[in-house]
Nucleic acid binder design. Sequence first.
DNA 1: CATAACACGGATAATATCACTCCGCGTTTG
DNA 2: CAAACGCGGAGTGATATTATCCGTGTTATG
Lengths: 185, 185
Amino acid sequence: MAHLTVSVEYAIHSLLWLVDAETAPLSSRDLADFQGVSPSYLAKIFPKLEKAGIVKASEGVRGGYELARAPEDINFLQIVDAIEGRKPLFDCQEIRGRCAAFGELPPTWATRGVCSVHAVMLRAEKAMRETLAGASLRDLTQAVSRKAPPEFANDVKAWLGERVLRRAGKSSSSARLSSHGEDLS
Amino acid sequence: MAHLTVSVEYAIHSLLWLVDAETAPLSSRDLADFQGVSPSYLAKIFPKLEKAGIVKASEGVRGGYELARAPEDINFLQIVDAIEGRKPLFDCQEIRGRCAAFGELPPTWATRGVCSVHAVMLRAEKAMRETLAGASLRDLTQAVSRKAPPEFANDVKAWLGERVLRRAGKSSSSARLSSHGEDLS
DNA sequence: CATAACACGGATAATATCACTCCGCGTTTG
DNA sequence: CAAACGCGGAGTGATATTATCCGTGTTATG
């Protein structure tokens, strides 16, 4: 049919963890490692969310991303458009005007208004976009927390919190590198 | 967002002319020339419509295509699926199971049922497909005939009818080649 | 002040898909 | 038999997707 890209999937899943992140900004690297996706690729996705005003960036060590507004004001359609750039579902080639039954150039009745085929596709696109616009980031977090046991939220905060702490300075407490699983032996 | 291909556009526009074609089967070549699209490309599209049971093929000179059933029983969704092969809108990577907060393998609650992100995309896809399923080829012909003047239907029949006649034998009557506009001079 | 980690942008590469062409096969009609 | 058809496979150029790597500038920590 068509395709919503993996980038959209990465973006939505990443934003999910940003919702309840009290541990100030989370870096794209933290989010990538936490979710098991490519850090270098996720790093290319976040600037698009920032330009769309979905996310706020802060630079320097301890920098990273936060939601730019409340999760109930961020919906799937905004995210999709931020990542994929508002590409239409259907790209009308205006075939109607090339009919050989018209001589040189088509009569005005043939090219006036929207092509009837195109009109159907526009309705389909609208239906899809309305569904996406009706799903907020808040809805998503609620769906997830209905599935997860209560202690899961703490596990997440623990993992991400340690990651943020480790960034600058106080590294050693439990002296594992962990990030790549590589051994020095 | 995504993309319905031009193949779908060519298919729908071609089927439109098949609806009122009394001049038995129309070849993909006739339809391509009539609409000003690539004949060799349109020829790759029709076998897909035939395998989907939308169109009936007949071989040999004077062969070509006819609708396999009434235009009210052919809808946009069937055509799209025939051409593009029922590709899903969203291809879930199951990111939820790769969360680093789970150790080795994710707990059952995390991977049971449909991913919450995926569920939204499935609803969006369903909304789009339902819109496409709600538009029949008959609806399309009615929309077009509301726009076109009454004599247009005759012009179409004249052009296509002459094309079919010219195929075998009785070529000469008004001795123009017309199909490519090439001159022998 | 040096280091490390961050955001950001540009360059590149591998793979896939799309739009399209060309060819050869078997079938049917004049 | 020739011409036109449907059909299938092979191949081409353009573009998009999913990455990777590197360089620049910024900021907190030791």
